[in-house]
Nucleic acid binder design. Structure first.
Lengths: 200, 200
DNA sequence: CTGTTAGCGCATTCAT
DNA sequence: ATGAATGCGCTAACAG
């Protein structure tokens, strides 16, 4: 079995409280016992259980990232970055491919909430804003990226579709082009409308 | 606050033991109270805490996937698949970009162990087999993919480099090509050696 | 500076 | 068929 905080306490001849304190560097403990406990810890190769710690209210150091499809290089790149930043701060990230399926999305979101992630980053247009609202009420930090959610007050980082369209159009004009075509998959899509708007 | 099992029990006029039983469909409970508890649960929008459940010994429904770089389409594809299968079975997967850095790898691996993942899939040649051994001792299921680890007894799925090389070479020969070149980045790499071997 | 104790939310005997 | 009690591993007051 993996050693617990009790094993360390016993082996070090102190109380679990003391061990806990040296682990989290909280409270006051003599330099001597601190070092002693530390040595015992690594001798036993002790590693605190994050699930137990999480149960007491501490954060899980886990965040969820929802995106349509990881196989899409655009999102893979995003995932890579999020993961990088996460790792820098000691976080692990859950990848959630929603395929833009509302059901999968809700399923993922509720799973993430049950696992008490510290936050969620969504690179998908969250379709069920009813559910989104619930998450917000649960005080789960949420950041939207790539999508918009005008009805709710959520931190969002989005791409400036208008500017993008403008720059693209401008670039072509500068090259002297006169006859420019625009291919749009879906005119109901807000992003595309904005890009188009920026273009003319 | 999110409702706990106690809230449900109280609202339903039963004990938490009963609620726990209907949640996990274990033990014997009358059809009547089962339904009643269920209705109370959804009325309170109760969702069992997976971290609490995990602490009692149940699995975390979480697995870790280590790979060199998610931005590499090859691995992104793998991640996508792993995630898909995981989701089908109610699992979440932690993505871990190691960049083939031994330190990052160890850091990730130990984090995963602290978070008590149910298993680990590694798409990287695990460099620290000392650490690998520890994980195995901890009874954490591990599966290697894409890499080899001859020294240890670990489940592994790998690509048949020899066959690949053979097929590639054969294909060109069938097309009637006579002068064939092979570009290899690193001849010390076992995969490449095998591919080359299969080619001639 | 260090130890006791009481939870955190749930699963699990063991009685009833 | 159901409930009371105990423990999982750790943190957080509160006492000494």
């Amino acid at each position: 079995m993996k050693p617990t905080i009790y094993d360390v306490a016993q082996a070090a001849g102190v109380s679990i409280a003391t061990v806990s304190k040296v682990i989290n560097a909280t409270g006051r403990i003599s330099d001597k016992t601190r070092k002693h406990v530390h040595s015992v810890m690594e001798q036993l190769k002790y590693q605190p259980s994050m699930v137990a710690a999480a149960l007491t209210g501490k954060s899980t150091y886990t965040i969820g990232l929802t995106l349509p499809d990881l196989a899409n290089p655009f999102f893979a790149e995003i995932a890579r970055s999020v993961e990088d930043r996460g790792h820098e701060h000691g976080f692990n990230v859950f990848i959630c491919n929603t395929d833009n399926d509302p059901d999968k999305e809700v399923k993922y979101l509720s799973l993430l909430s049950q696992k008490r992630v510290d936050g969620i980053i969504s690179a998908t247009r969250i379709q069920n804003d009813q559910f989104l609202k619930k998450l917000i009420q649960q005080n789960i930090p949420i950041a939207l990226i790539t999508g918009e959610m005008p009805t709710l007050a959520v931190d969002t980082v989005m791409v400036d579709d208008y500017l993008g369209g403008f720059q693209a159009g401008n670039h072509l004009l500068e090259l002297g082009h006169k006859r420019i075509a625009i291919l749009v998959e879906d005119m109901d899509n807000m992003s595309n409308r904005e890009r188009l708007r920026g273009c003319k």
